[in-house]
Nucleic acid binder design. Structure first.
Lengths: 346, 346
DNA sequence: CTGTTAGCGCGTTCAT
DNA sequence: ATGAACGCGCTAACAG
């Protein structure tokens, strides 16, 4: 039962590639107890400089690396944060992801990714994995998750930061993304000038935020007796481009609201190639712009949010929720899209 | 010493939010031993349908979720795969990431991200974390990592798949990305027609792959007595755009090779706005194209690789390395960029 | 300052 | 078919 009985490095099933150096091994070689080794690797101060040195050397010699798994089990903290996002090749999501990872790293957290496929079922599976994986907390940007799912996670005492919608409680913060109002304001102004030819590109599975923008425009149109046309498409530049080319055969004007700038470009290209003028005949507005908004000619009027910053803010908020001696007060922040009027609108 | 002494759910320091339901709890409530519960949650067949049912019910009732951490420690397998990539907002990287995650999920793995900041030191830190985190394997696409670092990781018996360069051994596979040859072929053909005005946009920290393309072109130029000009810029559309605008004040032609299509667009926009014709006066080639290559007008001639597929292939290769009863043979695959000649070259 | 010991939650023999 | 006991690698009291 003494400490040497603990490392029978031979009696393993697969002794071919299973021989991780443990804290026991280090202790044995250095001639100290494992508690001392533990103190050293955790930078406790109550160790003699000399023994510390000795331990450090044998750690180096043996190439010992502490197991985060064992540590997690012992401390019930994983220094691991879960990130839940939908699977999309969109720039704004990967920018956000970069922001999250960047600040997670600053605070010493490793991140695990739980990517959902835009179905409720898949979202539930990911929640399962998230809970089992023992993350200390999670940042969630996912349209498929409702309040009930969020609460399921919270039942397991996992602090959360939700991006996109306002939610708040003891261990739950949120970053609200405000596209709605800014977009609607531009539309209102346009309609206010007596125009009545706003058309919305409605993309299937475009996400909740886009849906909300669409609905708010539709509602405003109804209330103000304006005719808002809906153009339905699947999500693809090519499909929209082809569709709009035939559309412009017998429609020669309009104010087109598009979810992303690539789709706006599809409308613009189609219009120009059908001999129409932008923005004189057709005007185009992109709800979510990337850098390509000002790379493409004519430059696309679009809204934008610094998603890197959003991701970064969300992660910082989470680390505060995780920090016991932090009297956080701001558990919900709102960030609005800014409008960049460029060349595709008048 | 009997099993009931094992769950003193009160004597915790913070009994406020630490009360994860364990397998002990389930066993106690269901009136069975924890071994039985373990069998049930691992779908072992040697359990009576009746007791299995009983256990399942109490699991449901208690909302028990097995701890992946404890399981990892017990089995020394984490069902967790590490992904190491550089921090960039480039589409082709996030596409690759999507591909990796997508197939990791199919094989039942969770992924942890280790993002490096394009410095050797940061890369080393990430390696540290990777090793400590007990991943079962890792996929690496990172320019900062040399053979020595790769081998460091391998010392810890972590199966690896390297993207970008050919490497291979027992538990190490690779996906080689071939941009070099295809790009060089186009350049060769152009130079072969008697032209002598190729210019390369050289972006700082553009990554090893871009550097290699540059060097191979330079070398070819030297060997064939052709003058290849280098234009140095920092990585930013705006910087290149402004730089090229003044460049075109006193240069009226050239064949420009650019790392990415956004940078190619900078050259194109600058040229057009200085009254030059594309491709009549200036021709532009993008080494790595995205969908914006065919969205932008004039459409950009570019090379492309389906990076989603690359990521997916890498991950699949890794899962095979991880599978003990898989006699994998293909431990290194090569995938070449395809050329899409469009409107910015003749 | 250092060593001993008892868990963390689960998988896994070995008995029964 | 089921249960008791040990080990995975490490942290955290508690002694000394």
């Amino acid at each position: 039962m003494s400490s040497f009985s603990n490392k029978p490095s031979f009696s393993k099933k697969q002794m071919n590639l299973k021989d991780r150096i443990t804290i026991y091994e280090v202790a044995r070689v250095a001639g100290v107890s494992l508690a001392t080794v533990s103190r050293v690797i955790n930078n406790q101060d109550n160790v003699t400089a000399k023994t510390k040195q000795k331990v450090l050397e044998t750690i180096e010699k043996l190439g010992f690396r502490p197991s985060a798994v064992a540590r997690s089990l012992a401390t019930s903290k994983s220094t691991n944060i879960g990130i839940m996002i939908p699977s999309t090749g969109y720039m704004y999501i990967s920018n956000m992801l970069d922001g999250m990872i960047d600040t997670a790293k600053i605070y010493g957290y490793v991140t695990s990714l739980f990517v959902t496929k835009r179905t409720k079922e898949d979202a539930k599976n990911m929640i399962e994995l998230l809970i089992r994986s023992h993350v200390d907390g999670a940042v969630i940007y996912d349209d498929e998750l409702g309040t009930d799912e969020i609460m399921t996670i919270q039942n397991y005492h996992i602090p959360l930061v939700i991006i996109g919608h306002k939610m708040e409680n003891e261990s739950l913060g949120s970053i609200e993304i405000q596209f709605n109002e800014p977009v609607l304001n531009v539309i209102k102004e346009y309609l206010g000038k007596g125009n009545n030819d706003v058309k919305i590109l409605n993309i299937l599975n475009q996400g909740r935020i886009m849906d909300e923008i669409r609905d708010s425009i539709l509602e405003y149109g109804k209330n103000s007796n304006k005719n808002i046309e809906i153009l339905n498409y699947n999500d693809s530049y090519s499909l929209v481009y082809e569709g709009m080319k035939s559309y412009f055969k017998n429609h020669k004007k309009g104010f087109f609201v598009c979810p992303r700038d690539s789709l706006a470009a599809a409308v613009i290209n189609a219009a120009l190639e059908e001999g129409l003028k932008v923005p004189d005949d057709v005007q185009v507005l992109a709800e979510v712009g990337s850098k390509y908004s000002y790379i493409i000619r004519p430059e696309i009027s679009s809204f934008s949010i610094d998603m890197f910053k959003v991701g970064s803010m969300a992660m910082r908020m989470l680390t505060k929720l995780l920090d016991p001696n932090d009297d956080s007060k701001d558990k919900s922040v709102k960030i609005s899209a800014t409008y960049n009027k460029r060349q595709t609108t008048k």
